[in-house]
């Protein structure tokens, strides 16, 4: 193992890890937004919205994220959408993650006992108040852990933007593998940084999960 080489190149990997962290955070934010809207659509009383929500989930979960990213980044200019690689990465991965999060959020909401809504309605709360003040606060507690799983997947999925040349961890590893012919060393550097990011995120999710549980 070439430790000298690793010591020489690791600062570049640290910079790249920072890009991966930014990508992950922005993607998670957009994913949560899309996921919330998607879940609201899927649970809507309007059949059109339910259909659109279901179509969103099915199409984006049924095709590879890499292809979605390519359509947006390479195909976008044809329909007047010009994005740089980082923006395309965040938007493409965010919409993709949103489809998975839609199902997570919807799953948590429908697992709340129907009696809760009925009781709230009996007490005179409107449909909207019952959702907002009774159902969602309970569902939110159930969402933390599965959304943490989505987050874990999403961090690993940020590696895909290497294919559209965003200089993040995987791209950096690939470039240094190409120039140094030391795949193992470069994998070790990038892999370690990924595992640190995923570990810290996992701890944060576990902390949040403990925080929101009623004891």
């Amino acid at each position: 193992m070439d430790i000298d080489l690793m010591m020489r190149v690791y600062p570049f990997f640290l910079d790249a890890a920072w890009v991966t962290i930014q990508l992950s955070l922005l993607t998670a934010l957009l994913g949560l937004t899309c996921g919330t809207l998607g879940a609201a659509a899927r649970l809507s009383r309007l059949a059109v919205l339910r259909f659109l929500g279901a179509a969103y989930v099915s199409l984006f979960r049924g095709t590879p994220a890499l292809i979605q990213l390519f359509i947006l980044y390479f195909g976008g200019p044809q329909i007047g959408i010009q994005l740089d690689a980082f923006e395309a990465g965040v938007i493409g991965l965010g919409i993709n993650a949103g489809a998975y999060m839609t199902e997570t959020i919807r799953g948590a909401i429908i697992s709340i006992d129907k009696g809760q809504r009925e009781a709230a309605r009996t007490l005179g709360l409107s449909q909207w108040q019952a959702t907002y003040k009774v159902i969602l606060p309970q569902a939110a507690r159930l969402m933390v852990r599965p959304l943490g799983v989505n987050m874990n997947m999403l961090i690993k999925a940020t590696a895909l933007v290497a294919a559209i040349s965003v200089v993040e961890l995987t791209y950096t590893a690939q470039r240094y593998i190409g120039s140094t012919y030391k795949p193992f060393e470069m994998f070790l550097l990038a892999g370690l940084l990924y595992m640190i990011i995923i570990y810290v995120t996992g701890r944060a999710v576990a902390w949040l999960d403990r925080k929101v549980q009623i004891t």
């Binding site: 590696a159 593998i177 012919y181 030391k182 193992f184 892999g191």
Partner: peptide
């Protein structure tokens, strides 16, 4: 197992493809 679950598949593919050649 921990390494395989904690790193992206794309990175693993690069390791396997270029690593085996090496």
């Amino acid at each position: 197992e921990w390494v395989f679950m904690g790193t992206p598949l794309l990175l693993q593919l690069f390791l396997i493809y270029f690593g085996l050649v090496q």
